[in-house]
């Protein structure tokens, strides 16, 4: 007799799907907590990307961890979670503690550096890290290494000169770099119509002679598939790719923003209905990749994991004041 609760062996795609779902949940829970901690006066600043989880997690799971270079932007909690950064480490950054592995409390939250995973801290100035990605990719090509650089940014970044300069440079030199745009329709308060006269960021690719593709950024499997193809193409030496994942941020730009000033509640409600996590959950349940009980247990476990991480990170020691002077130059204790 078959027992109903007997876990059956999972196929490889099922394992991947469950891992991505878990990362999306963890990213959301962690992001919600970071915002709440700011509202409670326990963290000075928060910047997160609730609603972007499918775009972030789907693309990050297409990377070769530790081989490919990752240049995330400040919304990419999902990318870092997918790469394996722990909630505690991310929260040490939020609280700017001495043990913050990204910067020892020097950088703003969610501006990660993580050499083991080849994660490079971004500039708070929009689009400034796109040229860095082109340069890293240039180094990979020069050395004949099969590494790909993936740089993340919002659609607002595509109005910057650095977007043009970096994409043009990468296209001329056929560099292995994926320009990954998380288009959430708003550059802080400015809607896309104020940023560009084309419908899709991907349309801009034509001007550089490279492939640009638009994907439903709330469909994690579609994002994953397109990212995998694009990264593979880069690895084969076929030049840069531009990906536009259309999505929506379900929270204000940062903890300092009030999004009610520039978008309607009705619009937000529409996008809440298209929440990428709900959508993926429905699919996994429908396909039998997980059961409702497993889902409930997973969510409970993630809540607990994040709560424990908050408690531990908040109690961690502050940086020593004298540490402020270190690392200005490489020879200063670097």
């Amino acid at each position: 007799m078959v027992r109903v609760n007997e876990p059956r062996p999972r196929t490889a795609p099922e394992k991947l799907h469950r891992a991505m779902y878990r990362d999306m949940l963890l990213s959301r829970e962690l992001s919600d907590r970071m915002f709440a901690l700011n509202r409670q006066g326990r963290a000075a600043f928060a910047v997160t990307g609730q609603g972007h989880e499918a775009a972030q997690v789907g693309s990050a799971h297409a990377l070769r961890r530790g081989t490919d270079w990752v240049l995330p932007y400040y919304r990419d909690v999902g990318v870092l979670v997918a790469l394996g950064m722990t909630p505690r480490d991310i929260l040490l950054g939020l609280f700017a503690k001495a043990g913050d592995p990204a910067s020892g409390g020097r950088q703003m939250p969610c501006h990660w550096s993580w050499p083991e995973m080849r994660v490079v801290t971004r500039s708070s100035v929009i689009a400034a890290n796109l040229p860095h990605a082109a340069g890293i990719a240039y180094a990979s090509k020069l050395r004949g290494l099969k590494e790909v650089s993936v740089v993340y940014f919002g659609e607002g970044a595509t109005s910057e000169g650095d977007f043009h300069e970096a994409v043009n440079f990468a296209a001329i030199h056929k560099l292995p770099v994926v320009f990954f745009c998380e288009n959430n329709g708003y550059a802080i308060s400015e809607s896309s119509e104020k940023q560009m006269s084309v419908l899709h960021v991907a349309d801009r690719a034509k001007g550089y002679g490279i492939t640009g593709s638009t994907v439903d950024g709330n469909d994690v499997l579609a994002v994953h598939q397109l990212s995998r193809w694009s990264i593979d193409e880069c690895r084969r030496g076929r030049g840069p790719k531009l990906i536009e994942a259309k999505t929506y941020r379900l929270v204000p730009h940062t903890s300092s923003d009030d999004d009610r000033r520039y978008r309607t509640r009705a619009e937000l409600d529409e996008w809440i209905k298209r929440d990428p996590i709900d959508r993926f959950r429905a699919r996994l349940l429908d396909e039998g990749t997980m059961t409702p009980d497993e889902d409930a247990a997973l969510r409970e476990q993630i809540k607990r994991q994040v709560a424990e991480a908050v408690e531990s990170a908040e109690r961690a020691p502050e940086p020593a004041p004298e540490d402020a002077l270190r690392h200005v130059f490489a020879e200063d204790g670097g």
Binding site: Y138, A139, L142, D162
Partner: peptide, 28 residues
């Protein structure tokens, strides 16, 4: 051409890509 590279008139990416290549272990 591998060692001596002409670039487009794009000062920001010339320095920015130099930064990237330096971070990746080269000496541009």
């Amino acid at each position: 051409e591998r060692r001596v590279k002409d670039t487009p008139i794009s000062e920001s990416v010339v320095v920015g890509a130099g930064i990237g290549a330096a971070m990746a272990g080269l000496k541009p």
